[in-house]
Amino acid sequence: MPTAYVEVYEEEFERLEQALRRLRYDSNAKAVFLIDKNGQQIAAVGDVEEFDTTSLASLTAGNVAATDGLAKLIGEREFSVLFHEGQRDHIHISIVARRAILLVIFDERSSLGLVRLRVKRASTEMDEIFEDMNRKENRGPEGQVETSPFSEITDEDIDSLFGD
């Protein structure tokens, strides 16, 4: 099948959110986002309503993809951390489990050093959660393996999305 899927189930979603909440608290950040490398937001915590989260996810992924391209051009595998310094707010971007992006937005109540330190710890925890997710993706979630909720999508369901 040409299309690949990234699937997040309830249990891992909650664990990821919990890890993000802890990171936000420990690093005194304004908001923390976990984004799929293709630009889809996986989870977010903190003052997220301040931001256009969809655009943030897409631009962050574009930024990481462009920087990855740069890294390869000079013979590096990747630049694992990116930091953008603003006048008031700053952005710390790092790669988690090679497939997701952790974005931390912070201001003067925190510092780059503190964010780096806490991100490192949170990344280790998230690596494990992603490993569990990989296992589930290969196997399907327990107890509901057999039927995908999408197998019963009808042509009418699809047409109704477009108001046909």
Binding site: T3, A4, V6, E7, E10, D36, N38
Partner: peptide, 15 residues
């Protein structure tokens, strides 16, 4: 890469 979030009940697709 269709992104399916069962917790938030969302499907995201990229065109």
């Amino acid at each position: 890469m269709t992104f399916i979030n069962y917790a938030a009940k969302e499907i995201n697709c990229k065109i």
